[in-house]
Design a protein around this nucleic acid. Sequence first.
DNA 1: GTGCAAGTTGAAGTGCACTTGATGTCAAGC
DNA 2: GCTTGACATCAAGTGCACTTCAACTTGCAC
Lengths: 160, 160
Amino acid sequence: MNGSELLSVGEVARRAGFATSALRYYEGAGLLTSTRTAGGQRRYPRSVLRRLAFLRAAQSVGLSLEEIRAALSSLPAERTPTKADWERLSRAWRARLDEQILGLTALRDGLSSCIGCGCLSLRRCALSNPDDAARFDGAGARYLPAALRRPAPRPDGMPA
Amino acid sequence: MNGSELLSVGEVARRAGFATSALRYYEGAGLLTSTRTAGGQRRYPRSVLRRLAFLRAAQSVGLSLEEIRAALSSLPAERTPTKADWERLSRAWRARLDEQILGLTALRDGLSSCIGCGCLSLRRCALSNPDDAARFDGAGARYLPAALRRPAPRPDGMPA
DNA sequence: GTGCAAGTTGAAGTGCACTTGATGTCAAGC
DNA sequence: GCTTGACATCAAGTGCACTTCAACTTGCAC
């Protein structure tokens, strides 16, 4: 019932399933904070476990550490995040997850309906329409949501 | 109606939304093949566009080039893949996509039901149960499908 | 038949997300 | 109070997926 027992890196690493080196890396990257003992060793509050659970989940859906850092920065650093804190975060991410789920569903269904269909007009394909992606238009149905059209690591044509 | 017009790298890059350097890289990695002109320039059949569409889509759902290479290797290198070829690939991937969709849905719903719930027993959490992930048990409900529990880049304890 | 954009190769560089190694300090058990 | 394992920092290394660079060649348009 005592909420003030602090965890060492090793303890957190074990409980959260990360390497200690990763935890130190996350701290350097601004995703985690810790207090220190007199001797300089890290001590974490329990809430770091939830933070790490979120981090892991977010990574799994393909978000970069920077994106996750931005999201987590909306959590209070000092006090333990409340239900309301997490719910706010949850709402913000729901849209993204919805989009991603939609995209995957389209992809799954598209695998038979489009890629498997034998149609040769790739340009109208639901799965990947790079011409559309490259264009800056807003018109026309977007089959694959933006989340799944990963920004095509700089095609030659566009030096921006 | 002539199926034999070949495309240059630049053409393919433009149409598929990749950089030419990426196309050469993919060829080196065994994901693409090309014929050459007398002068040594690459020429691609139209079917490469579909291949690239698949590649992009697969990347978007988080698959490595190696996994994609393995999948694509089941396509005939010489003749243009048929509807049946793509459908076979499609079937093989459907399970993976289903799993990923399931996982994302669980994650989305879990964001309010678990992370947002205020419950402190992270160990029973649907979102991330690293203890379970670390354990080699088969018992108990797995909330997050394997596809979403990315293999936790080697936690300290396990040197394997 | 020539000019020049587009193509070629190989080696090296980039960014992300970490891990590994060297070297030294801390703290809990005996 | 000493040993031992966990912890500290910092620099360098790793793997993936590309991109960039330098130096040179091709091939279509005129």
